[in-house]
Design a protein around this nucleic acid. Structure first.
Length: 297
DNA sequence: GCCAGCCTGTTG
DNA sequence: CAACAGGCTGGC
């Protein structure tokens, strides 16, 4: 479900709630979700940061008062299709499809004058996932990049060091592959999924069926700019909520109202009025405008 | 490269 | 009832 803009929105929504809290307990309602629970001490970790890498969310934590070599961890979370991370401030939220629950305590040192009903000393972070494709891993601090799916992940599309040239190099690694497939490949660029690939291809006027090597310099530049603009805009709208997606505070995004082609098969192209095509490309439902994005012969 | 498989829920 | 759903892995 969540692509880069959704994971980034979740990160931003959870950041102020989680920082400074200690993982006091972890309930594993389904043991297969937290992959390597047996290899780590799950509790006693003080949350210091929340990062995003592609579609992965990373929780950085340390063991307070420990200067030893194993005093930090990174919890890596991937939500796959229907995963959600939800903040539960009362412990009374619905438990259906909740597979892991982190109990988070605010340290005693933090002032508690009894009036902070929206900042209780115990809150819960729920991992909820109807289809159970999502996973969680613990790693020693600094080891997360070598292990897990983070290894080999391509560049972050919204950073300055992702350039048009880098996109061109990524495409050149899969010359015969169609462009839809290449953009979905997380080794080429991290964080794009089905929605934003379709939208970026539409915005740059490129058919999803075009072979990667067939794009000329101008097209690659249009595509590069479109990817960045679409992702920025989607973050600005707090993500796309079709069915399951909500941020960490259970709030929907509204980029679904801005989509030009995705989920709009059979409707009019907002640019030229042609009927938008819906078909299967790279094994995924794919929408494009046959006039704005002419297929190769 | 393609495609089944992982899962459950919703839609036609 | 079958087909499909925002992702990724691993088997050929």
């Amino acid at each position: 479900m969540p692509e880069l803009p959704e994971v980034e929105t979740i990160r931003r929504s959870l950041l102020p709630e989680l920082i400074g809290r200690v993982i006091e307990d972890v309930d594993l309602y389904r043991s297969d979700i937290l992959i390597n629970a047996d290899d780590y001490e799950l509790t006693g970790w003080l949350i210091k940061g929340l990062r995003r890498r592609g579609k992965y969310l990373l929780i950085d934590a340390v063991r307070p008062g420990d200067d030893g070599p194993n005093n930090s961890i990174t919890i890596v979370i991937h939500l796959r299709m229907t995963g959600q991370l939800l903040l539960d401030k009362t412990g009374e939220m619905q438990r259906d499809h909740v597979h892991v629950r982190f109990q988070l305590r605010r340290p005693e040192s933090t002032i508690d004058d009894g009036s902070q009903s929206d900042n209780p000393s115990i809150i819960y972070l729920l991992f909820r996932d109807v289809r159970r494709f999502g996973r969680i891993w613990y790693f020693r601090g600094g080891c997360e990049n070598q292990q897990s799916g983070l290894a080999g992940l391509g560049p972050e599309p919204l950073t300055d060091n992702w350039t048009c040239r880098q996109l061109a190099q990524g495409l050149s690694r899969y010359p015969k592959s169609n462009i839809k497939n290449v953009l979905l490949n997380q080794h080429v660029v991290a964080g794009l999924g089905n929605i934003y690939v379709d939208e970026a291809l539409f915005k740059s006027g490129i058919s999803p069926l075009r072979a990667a090597a067939s794009l000329n310099e101008a097209e690659i530049e249009r595509l590069y700019n479109a990817i960045r603009e679409i992702l920025e805009a989607a973050i600005g709208h707090r993500g796309t909520s079709f069915r399951d997606y909500v941020d960490g505070l259970n709030t929907k995004g509204h980029f679904q109202y801005e989509l030009k082609v995705y989920s709009r098969g059979g409707l009019e192209c907002p640019v030229c009025g042609q009927t938008i095509l819906k078909r299967r490309v790279a094994g995924r439902g794919t929408c494009s405008c046959p006039r704005c994005q002419p297929d190769p012969q």
